[in-house]
Design a protein around this nucleic acid. Structure first.
Lengths: 213, 213
DNA sequence: ATTATCTATAGATCTATAGATAATGC
DNA sequence: ATTATCTATAGATCTATAGATAATGC
């Protein structure tokens, strides 16, 4: 009665590893798009070309997959960093251009996990939160290195302000959708980062307003 | 057999309005804590001192409540703004102090919806997204006003960069939890905003590095 | 009489489990 | 023989609905 076309059902250990990898990769993309709660086991397995019943031979629970997927989502962006910046004349500018692009805004699934999972991570906690902390540290170390070489040693503070502005800009621009205001936000923050005008050395002019109007 | 103590069951129109209000207020808090998907109808109604069955006399669907709750969550923060800044010697500093505080980080339920709902809003869409856009506009207009009066008319761009940094800092600090790094991020961005060192006028010194090391 | 709320439940969906099936690998 | 995957389903949870109950308000 019911004819189900069954193609490519493999059973080797190698194939199991490939299945596991596919499940995690798909989950890592889906949770960046839709959060850690929305995608169900059945949907993820279907997208991996499998049925939901086999899921528990790969993971002890849905939570276990989500933890692994969060880690993957966060290291994903990191692994794409060298391709963006190596060989660039101005690595910071290249990074800002890629991070604060409409492409990044419009495709959270393949983008930075620090933005996409920002509001979910505190609710998940555990190893996923550790992975988040580690990725923030990597970003800060990276930005600090790129921002050093200026005339004072405030690179750490500049890295913090720069990361905050970049992450905030992408989150807000995504929430707005592809509107002119959204483009404007990406562009203004991109230029501020490129021109290194976030937390620059205090201007020498003593005309600082102590009491604002 | 089953004794249920039934207290304060009222039925006036006035009480219905009060119930509606309570449901929305509770939902607005819960979605900032846990996202727009997690809190269920039954849980929200229980928190409002009601049973889940009565819900559909107040709202056509759960989605309808969520839309109203998102709008409430976003205007909530706006309505608390005057109390923070009016009468302050430096309103921008007062705003930065409140926004980039550990208190705000540690209590999303009563905090800014632009941060708390940032990753959810694009998924919800509709009137909720319009409410988000409106709140971003209000923040930008407010910051632009506070940042004007400097020596150039870049206030709009500074408002964009400032809002991005503030929103990003609170989101990241929340994701990290109450750690030293988290405190550091809040503090550094707070000081950068207070000192108006985000996108200040380009320094007059012509020693700008055109070709970075 | 009207209606705000309550109790009870239908229907859908989701996680997790049990047992069957069809490959791999000794 | 082992095991990766499949089919089928139990159990829990959630939205939404139906009908009962107990107030308000004419």
């Amino acid at each position: 009665m019911i004819a189900i076309i069954q193609f490519a059902m493999r059973h080797s250990k190698q194939d199991k590893a490939a299945s596991h990898e596919r499940i995690v990769a798909i989950a890592a993309a889906r949770i960046r798009e839709s959060g850690t709660e929305q995608p169900g086991v059945a949907e993820i397995m279907r997208a991996a070309g499998l049925t939901h019943g086999g899921f528990y031979k790969h993971f002890g629970s849905r939570d276990e997959l989500i933890a692994e997927a969060v880690e993957r989502a966060l290291t994903d962006s990191q692994s794409r960093m060298p391709g963006i910046t190596t060989g660039a004349e101005d690595p910071l500018a290249a990074f800002a251009d890629a991070y604060l692009s409409a492409t990044h805004r419009d495709d959270p699934a393949t983008g930075c996990g620090v933005v996409a999972l920002g509001t979910d991570i505190a609710r998940v906690g555990g190893p996923a939160q550790d992975a988040y902390r580690a990725q923030v540290e990597r970003y800060l170390a990276y930005l600090e290195r790129l921002l050093a070489g200026d005339d004072d040693d405030d690179a750490r503070r500049r890295a913090i302000v720069t990361l905050s502005a970049m992450v905030g800009a992408v989150m807000i621009s995504r929430a707005l959708g592809p509107t002119p205001r959204s483009d404007e936000i990406l562009r203004d923050v991109r230029e501020a980062v490129r021109e290194r005008r976030l937390l620059p050395t205090r201007r020498p002019t003593p005309t600082q307003a102590d009491t604002p109007a």
